[in-house]
Amino acid sequence: MSDQAMRDAWFPVGLLSGLTRAGTASMLMGEDITVGLDDTGAPSVDCGGRKLPTVERFGHLWTSLGAPEKDLFTIPEADHPERTLVDVGVVRVKCSPLRAVENFLDIAHFPFVHTDILGEEDHPEVNNYKVEVRKDEDEVWATKVEFYQPQAAASAGGGIITEYMYRVPAPTCSVLYKTCPPRPGEWDVICLFVQPLTEELCDVWPWMALFDDTSTITDLIHFQQLIFLQDRSILENQIPKKLPLDPALETPTRADLTSVAYRRWLKRHDYTYGAQLVAE
């Protein structure tokens, strides 16, 4: 099994606002890297004396161990000048980077893991939604995902049916669009950017582009950290640690169609770093 496909992908490795000349030791797919600023003050990533390609986008520095064919994806909605852009900060999780993304694509866990915030046990039903791989962009998309939520966002006053769209534009990145309580008709954008340190360890960099005139940035950061840290205790306790790509090993239902599409898409592209192909 070759990791080349994943080595050619882009990964987040730090907040642009946090880069220093001294540099920070980090890791990418098992290789030691140093992330920081070079002598001219430009962001740079070093891997054993080799300068890696970089992109600055969405408040983060991105790099690749290989030679990416495609530019890093864009999020046109995030460019709206009235949006608040929120760097949530890094959280390390002892799990497969692919499991971290899959959890982000899942709404069925809201009543049990994010109880009374993103879901409640009296409203656990997941209705049918639409999943596709968009051919031109080569991205997994789920649309018309609806769920009852007691407190959908820091700005939400009470329970509402929230509509979601999910997008997987890169093997360890996911973008979700959700109903924006203060601005009907617009979408809040919440992203999970995952840096694979090893196959069973990752740094997760959540990032958001929201319409919210009432909450402070700190409130927004804390809301997202609250949600993500509730997930962390789940992610560190899944067995096996790697994401199984053998359909016989786990049991999806209709609610998991996004995850099924994501796993197939990973397999088709050989994005298998952090995956388990056959039962071990």
């Binding site: 899942d106 009543p111 049990f112 306790n237 899944q238 067995i239 786990e250 049991t251």
Partner: peptide
Amino acid sequence: GDRCPHRGMRLSHGFVRGNSLSCIYHG
């Protein structure tokens, strides 16, 4: 076994109601 057949969550993190054991991840 300490592994939920759905997505592999450890069932020892779950909860018991009456005569059944529920998984903490998706219930």
